[in-house]
Amino acid sequence: MWGSGILKGLGITFKHLWERKITEQYPEERPKLYPRFRGRLMLNPEKCIVCGMCVKSCPNNVLSFTEARLKESKKKVLTSYTIDHQYCMFCNLCVEACPTNGLYFSHDFEWAAFKREDIKTVYEPDLTGLELLALEEGEKKSAEKEAEDKLLKGVNAMIAAIKKNPARALSKVVESEEEALKLSEILGDDESKIKKLAELMVSDKEKAAKVAKAFLIKGQKKEQEG
């Protein structure tokens, strides 16, 4: 009969009206957590052997650490270990990768904070009394870093050259000397523009030429307007 379904539904809600309620009264009543619950990721710094597996396995670059060597035994030790929880996905990959079970998930799930920095955890093991050796030269400085230094030196030299003798320095990127002079006029003493051009001249000549041309055209336009 039409309406019997509605009555059945009403019966169900009526039954539940008197039933025991299922919601959890949270701050007073604590949730039941299972052993594998993934709360805050924690590190046991004593167990860490500074192998770097965790950093390699993390998809989101949550983990990072700094290290040093002991002076006598040349053993690596942890100087600081940072877990930036705001990017963590609780995927367990780092925990599985750690060979010494140094990483683990605690059952702590209440970590509201007022600042983003406060979500970070930094471990700084107590290393007093140990003689440390900063990582040997070359071990830390990668080839990349060296290249960067070299580039910086080159750029500085170029900036100096442009300031000293603009016509000669700039003629490398423009066609004629006149244009070079004009360009130097346009650049004036706008440090940021000079720096940009110098950087490009060191790293990518072609691009520098293009940028120089753009500067020139812009300058000419301004002249015409003014």
């Binding site: 957590l33 299972y34 594998r36 619950f37 993934r38 996905m89 367990n92 998930f105």
Partner: peptide, 17 residues
């Protein structure tokens, strides 16, 4: 709850490998 038992995460659990 069962997902939490197995993988520790409820909604988006990475359990399979």
């Amino acid at each position: 709850d069962m997902f939490e038992m197995t993988s520790g995460q409820r909604l988006i659990s990475s359990y399979m490998r």
